[in-house]
């Protein structure tokens, strides 16, 4: 069960539209390392997590990712507000515009539609948490690349907040992986899948 809170986690206030920035930032909505994938990864994995503390962490981080998806969408929404067709064409956004006008649709910067194939839910706690650690770093790198491409401080302020959250989530998943490993056979972490073999 979720309840909507009518506010962003962190403010997004962009005064000037910029279709070139929107074209790359949309990848953090529907791209391979984006916030939609992040939220669905953790919220799918939690059902096979046999340890309540880690299932709780997956729920809490998955929930925060939904708030990050909303922030990314707010950034793209504000960056594409009141654009002229001329500005859209010059920024190479015509391909997107013809299918979606300036509505939000989950795709990567390269135009690839969102796909669940960008993440796994493997039903094995060690495997899933190791994927989650990589996912947080991939998202952090993507935000670093966005910061290399975009210099409008209204945009970079919110992007820097999102980047920082990837680092905190990575830290928490590292601790969760250690907590899971401590509960496994100390001679061999990989002897069993505690979500399946310990029946």
């Amino acid at each position: 069960m979720w309840k909507y809170e009518k506010r962003l986690e962190y403010p997004v206030k962009i005064k000037k539209p910029d279709s070139a920035a929107a074209k790359v930032i949309i990848t953090q909505f529907g791209g391979p390392d984006g916030e939609l994938a992040a939220s669905q990864r953790y919220l799918s994995q939690r059902y096979s997590m046999p340890y309540g503390d880690v299932a709780g962490l997956l729920t809490d981080i998955g929930t925060e990712e939904l708030a990050h998806m909303e922030m990314v969408c707010a950034i793209v929404c504000q960056l594409t507000k009141d654009l002229t067709v001329d500005q859209i064409e010059k920024a190479g956004l015509a391909d997107y515009f013809v299918d979606h006008t300036v509505g939000l649709w989950p795709q990567s910067a390269g135009g690839v539609p969102f796909s669940a194939t960008v993440f796994q839910s493997k039903g094995d706690p060690i495997t899933d948490l190791t994927e989650d650690l990589a996912a947080e770093q991939k998202a952090r790198t993507t935000y670093d690349n966005i910061l290399r491409l975009v210099d409008n401080p209204d945009v970079t302020d919110a992007i820097k907040f999102l980047r920082e959250r990837e680092i905190v989530h990575f830290q928490r998943f590292g601790e969760a992986l250690r907590r899971v490993q401590e509960r496994l056979d100390s001679k061999n972490f990989y002897a069993v899948n505690p979500a399946f073999d310990n029946k």
């Binding site: 709780g56 981080i61 601790e175 969760a176």
Partner: peptide, 16 residues
């Protein structure tokens, strides 16, 4: 937003 963020951070930290 400031107080909400403090809660979010505290919750994730306490989970582990």
């Amino acid at each position: 937003q400031t107080c909400g963020f403090a809660v979010t951070e505290a919750v994730l930290f306490l989970d582990t």
